[in-house]
Amino acid sequence: METLTMTRAAHVAPKSPGVRLCGIRRERLEKQIYQMISERVHAERNQPTPKPDYVTTTQRDFCVQGFIPHRPETTETHDYKNDQAITFWSENYQRVQGVTAVRNVKTPFRKSAQFSTPISERLDEIELPPDN
């Protein structure tokens, strides 16, 4: 069988002309420019890693020369066992939908059986609410 096909015969590899196309000086100058550019790109991409800073936030912010820690004085006495917690909902209970009538302003989210107690059995109300 023949090793040369129509495709191989039509597509041959390009051959060099056999003579220099540029001078030696130009060739060396191009190599030098390529070398300089590659060194710059290498220096930009492979920058040395910075030394790690092992200082914590406490050391950086609170152990500074001249820092004097002090506690602010309390304006009111608070009892964490009995006082109601101040939250978004406790401050905006007037705008919350589905909450029964608030009797005590300091504790708006206590249990209330008003919605299920018949009107005739409400003993703590002096007058009945109007029927609308």
Rank of each mutant, 00 (worst) to 15 (best):
V99T: 04
G66P: 05
V105C: 00
T5Y: 08
I126W: 11
D131S: 09
C63K: 11
P50V: 04
R122Q: 11
Q32N: 02
E121K: 15
G23F: 01
F67E: 06
T107Q: 05
P69G: 03
R71S: 03
T77G: 12
K15G: 00
H78A: 01
S90W: 06
D79Q: 07
V102L: 08
G98W: 04
K51A: 01
A13T: 04
N132L: 13
F115W: 13
R26L: 04
N104M: 02
F88R: 14
V19N: 08
Q32C: 02
T100R: 12
A13Q: 02
G66D: 07
K81C: 01
R26E: 05
F62Y: 12
P17S: 15
R28C: 06
Q94I: 09
K15P: 00
V12Q: 12
Q59F: 10
T107C: 02
E2V: 02
Q84T: 06
R60S: 10
R28N: 05
V105A: 01
R110D: 01
K15H: 02
Q32K: 05
T57A: 07
M6C: 07
I33A: 10
R45Q: 13
I68C: 08
A10C: 13
L29A: 10
Q59I: 12
G66H: 07
E73M: 12
C22D: 06
N92D: 03
A10I: 15
G18R: 04
Q84V: 03
S16D: 08
H11K: 15
E125P: 10
I33K: 12
T49G: 11
R103E: 00
T3L: 09
P129C: 06
K106C: 00
R103Q: 00
V19L: 08
I126C: 13
K106Y: 00
T58G: 12
C22E: 07
D79L: 05
D61V: 14
D79K: 11
Q94Y: 03
P129L: 06
Y34F: 00
M6Q: 15
D61A: 14
C22G: 08
N104E: 00
A101T: 11
N46P: 04
P72M: 14
D61T: 10
P69T: 06
Y34R: 02
T107E: 04
Q32S: 05
D61I: 15
V102K: 11
K31H: 04
A10R: 15
E39S: 10
T5D: 04
K111Y: 01
R26H: 02
E39M: 05
K106N: 01
T57R: 14
K111R: 08
L21C: 09
P69A: 09
G66S: 07
V55L: 14
T3E: 10
D53G: 13
A9N: 14
P118E: 05
P130K: 10
Q65C: 12
T74A: 09
C22N: 11
V41R: 08
F109M: 09
T7V: 15
E127F: 14
P118L: 08
N132S: 09
Y93F: 09
V102F: 05
G23A: 10
L128S: 11
V96R: 11
N92S: 03
G23I: 05
L21N: 12
S116N: 13
Q114P: 00
S120D: 03
T100C: 01
E76I: 13
E2Y: 01
H11L: 10
Q114D: 02
D53H: 10
R95D: 03
V102E: 03
S112T: 12
G66I: 06
